[in-house]
Structures are given as structure tokens and as C-alpha cells.
Amino acid sequence: MQNKSISNPIIEVKNLTFSRGSRKIFNNLSFSIPCGKITAIMGPSGTGKTTILKLIAGQLKPDRGQVLVKGLDVHKLKRQKLYELRRVMGMLFQSGALLTDLNVFENVAFPLREHTNLPNEILSPLIKMKLQAVGLRGAQKLMPAELSGGMARRVALARAIVLDPEIVFYDEPFAGQDPISMGVLVELIQKLNQSLKLTSVVVSHDVDEVLSIAEYVCILSEGKIVASGTPEDLLNSNSDYVNQFIKGYADGPVSFHFPAKNYVEDLKDNANAS
């Protein structure tokens, strides 16, 4: 089950090494994301899924290795070129990251106001359409502080797609959503991907939802890609990692625990100390 070579990758991560302090998050990581498809990145909490998105977008610098987006080495680009590249990328942040001094409508309008000269008569219906798509047209006057976590993330999603980017990164789009809005979002991501021919990268733990829309899946664990392929490949996989992750067993090769010393030892230490 190795990385089958992808015919037309839009994002290529090559031999990437990245550390936080003394902890190596990625060690010689390589993978590609195909153009025009929905790719899911899954993996245990804390393995670095958010980190890899930030590396791809050029917000973090790797220790070694390179990231190519549309053939451009993100970390070698001049500031201005990088900003140009980012115009064709949309990112839904895990935390939403709405601008707290603007209301919902203005938050979604922000990228358009910054990068286009659309008059209000055109801009306003456009924003309302995006808000309608995430079910929050009625909330356009609210400030970010007045939204629930799930609502904030849907506003952020509307903002991420308002410029009609070529590549959209969704960091946990389904977290904190009720089953209804989850269904709507799944459908929305799929529809956007088909109608706009964009490349979507979805980071999520919701295995069923993700596998239902993804055309390509990478499973990340302990700084490596442990499996990748189509959802069918993974469901039929006989790899322990994949089975454990997709079926959610606590025991197996993927550790539920953050790296730590032996549990019993740790408890004993306490007993000795007191």
C-alpha cells in the first residue's frame, strides 16, 4: 500500500523535515495531492495535520525539504510571489480565525474588498449567497464573539471560498457541527469541488463523512504517511494502522497517547516523591 504515483499532482511535499523545539514532527515526509480532487488527510490528534497545512501554505518554514504548489517552491518564493500564490488558496482554520472587529458579513466580504473593486451592489448578493450556502444568511449582522464554535467555523468556510480559490484547505470543517449541518457541509464541499473544479484538502477525524467524499486519502501518523490511496483501498486494506484508525480501536500500532515514559513508572515516581 505505498504511495501510488499520482498523475497530476498540484501539491508535492518532498523529503520534508520539521521540528517544534526538540520534537521532530515530520521526518523526511513525502507525499502528493492530486489536482482537482478531494484529498483527505487523516491521522491521530497531535500528529501534525494542521502543521502540514501551514507548511504547505508557507506559514511555517521546514528545517529541510521542499513543498511545491503548482510547481512553485513555496519556501523559496519572494514575499510578493508567495502572496500571489496565496490568492488562489483558501484556508479554513481549525479555530475559525475570524476577524473579531468585523461582523459576519464583513468577515466574508473581507477578501473581496481587499482584492477586488466590486461595487456593493455586486458584492452584497455574492456574500449573501455564500452565507446562504452555509446556512448563516440570518446571522450576517452578528459579531464573531456572538457565534457558537460551529457557526464560526461555517462563517470561516464561507470566507475561505469567497474568492473562488483553486485550492481549498479545510482544517476540521466538521468539528462541532450537528448532524444536519455536517451533512450540508459534506455536500457543500463536494459540490464546490465538482462545480468549480477545485482541489480540496480536508483534514478531519470524521471517518465516515470523509471517506464518503474523498477521492484520495492520506493517513498520517508519527511524522510519516502510513497509508494512502482511494477510500476503497483503505477500507480493504489489511494494514494494522489503517484498520485501527478507520475502525477506531484504542489498541494497535497507532498510539492514542502523546509520547510519554512508561505509565506504571510515571505513577510510581509520584508515589515515591510523596
Binding site: 496565496r86 484556508m91 482554520f93 479555530s95 475570524l98 473581507f110 477578501p111 481587499e114 482584492h115
Partner: peptide, 21 residues
Amino acid sequence: LMRSTEQISALEMMAVDPNKF
């Protein structure tokens, strides 16, 4: 706070330079 709530990152991702904005 803008940084800890990732608003600065979001600006960068929306290709808006925080230096300027």
C-alpha cells in the same frame, strides 16, 4: 490576541500582508 486567535495567520492566508494592513 490577534496572533493567538490566528487572525494574523488568516490575514496572511488571505494574501493580506499584516505589515500593511
